[in-house]
């Protein structure tokens, strides 16, 4: 089955200790919903707030996320889904919207066989 990365965006700094109780409760239910929709969670991580990030461009090391923006990647997970429609249904159900965030869905790259 094709795999998709789902990048979870929230208002900076995206602190996992500051999420609302509703979001936290909904996250508990999320894996079961993913399966119900015909997908499967492969891996998932929440990140420390973007204030802890360090960016490296060549020799230049700077404090903060790679791109300064109002919203930052707060976490990401990988799912398997039969097609983009199912992946988008899973993305729509992601509870981050309860805290005003959103997600980006990107298909994972698999190199073509020789």
């Amino acid at each position: 089955m094709p795999q998709y990365a789902v990048l979870v965006y929230q208002a900076a700094p995206g602190d996992p200790m500051q999420i609302s109780p509703e979001y936290e409760a909904a996250l508990e239910r999320y894996p079961a919903q993913v399966e119900e929709l015909g997908g499967r969670g492969v891996a998932g991580y929440a990140l420390q707030p973007s204030t802890t990030a360090t960016s490296v461009r060549g020799d230049l090391v700077t404090d903060g996320p790679f791109i300064e923006a109002k919203e930052v990647v707060a976490g990401f997970f990988v799912i398997e889904a039969p097609d983009l429609d199912v992946a988008l249904k899973i993305a729509k159900l992601n509870p981050v919207h309860l805290d005003g965030g959103g997600v980006e869905v990107r298909p994972l790259f698999t190199p073509p066989a020789e």
């Binding site: 998709y4 097609d83 983009l84």
Partner: peptide, 10 residues
């Protein structure tokens, strides 16, 4: 093709 947008009537 890459994102597998399905060939389907919704």
């Amino acid at each position: 093709s890459a994102a597998r947008i399905p060939y389907r009537v919704p």
